[in-house]
Nucleic acid binder design. Structure first.
Lengths: 181, 181
DNA sequence: CCGCTCATGTAACTGGTTACATGATTTA
DNA sequence: TAAATCATGTAACCAGTTACATGAGCGG
């Protein structure tokens, strides 16, 4: 039960949401997602779905479309149960832990750069976030249009976090500005 | 230059901040950190610092304290330069990308659980975040007390994100509540 | 017909994890 | 003095990445 990795569960979830689909479709989902946590590379997905099938979480069917062989995967009852068990409480403690933020990681060591370049870092990070936020907003609107409530809800969460990061940087810029002036 | 992993750079940063220190002290830094992104396991840190020394980013000295042999590491000029280069702009795009959030990941697939248990998930997640936030607040105060401006600033960023996640869940609870009632 | 994207895979590598081993030092 | 913890390491493993190989179908 606890033998499924986070990526495996996400793939299970994607197959559950989309219904019968090819590994390639799953990969595209990762490729178009604004998150870069998983690459969804062929080297991860193809072995993964076969692994899931071998363990009974997925079932596959060969369906030749034209002369082209392709394999579509469907979630099994066992897969659905595993997915539900993962989503439902109890939530492991680390799920609520501090999330990883590369900008924050750099912030710890910002003292190493000369003070006149510190605000440059903050400004650039803020600008990068503002660029990214538009992508997320678009994705948010797309899900709303599709009527996918939960994906939409998830995206609003991502949006809120990005806005919090921007506000944080703006505030940091002010408090550092006070120090150096 | 770009041959250093994120973890290697963070370790470099820790050694820079604390001055000469043992791998064990570095490990403790990871162990006490409220973030669980890296475990800071012996198996990662000990080989890592030796790797950094071999490449000239760290220098080490054997100093026997009592009968006990220990090795303290110091950052070299090369190490300092690498760290500064990493912190400074230009920031890679993925640094501003959506961060990974295990609660959000689950949210995508929340439709798989029966509607009467969905709000349970949201409530539990919110409660877990509220528990965690106290830890972060304490850490925040600790850094403020130490006068470590940048670590404190980093922590306030983490705090803002956690608050944003809580607000997001509270809002989700409301919008799902409307649907099911 | 050439090049691009679709689509399915494999192989080698790698960074980090878990688990284990060992001995010194401190504390009950 | 026994147990706990400090401290330094090693070895095996593993999930996921990068890079490569292959071929179908399609648009210019």
């Amino acid at each position: 039960m606890g033998d499924l990795s986070e990526l495996e569960l996400v793939v299970l979830g994607i197959v559950w949401k989309r219904g019968p689909c090819t590994p390639y479709a799953v990969r595209k989902e990762f490729a178009t997602s604004p998150s870069s946590h998983w690459s969804g590379s062929a080297g991860s997905i193809y072995p993964l779905v076969r692994r899931l099938e071998r363990r009974g979480y997925l079932r596959s069917r060969r369906e030749s479309q034209g002369r082209r062989a392709r394999r579509t995967y469907t979630i099994t009852r066992r897969g659905t149960a595993a997915l539900r068990r993962w989503v439902c409480p109890p939530l492991p403690d680390e799920a609520a832990a501090i999330t990883y933020d590369p900008i924050r990681t750099r912030m710890y060591f910002l003292g190493i750069v000369p003070p006149d370049r510190q605000s440059g870092f903050l400004a650039e990070a803020e600008a990068a976030l503002r660029r990214q936020i538009r992508v997320v907003q678009a994705e948010c609107a797309r899900y709303a249009g599709l009527g996918d409530t939960f994906s939409h809800l998830a995206m609003t969460g991502a949006l809120r976090i990005m806005r919090a990061r921007i506000a944080w940087l703006a505030n940091a810029r002010k408090s550092l500005g006070c120090m150096t002036v």
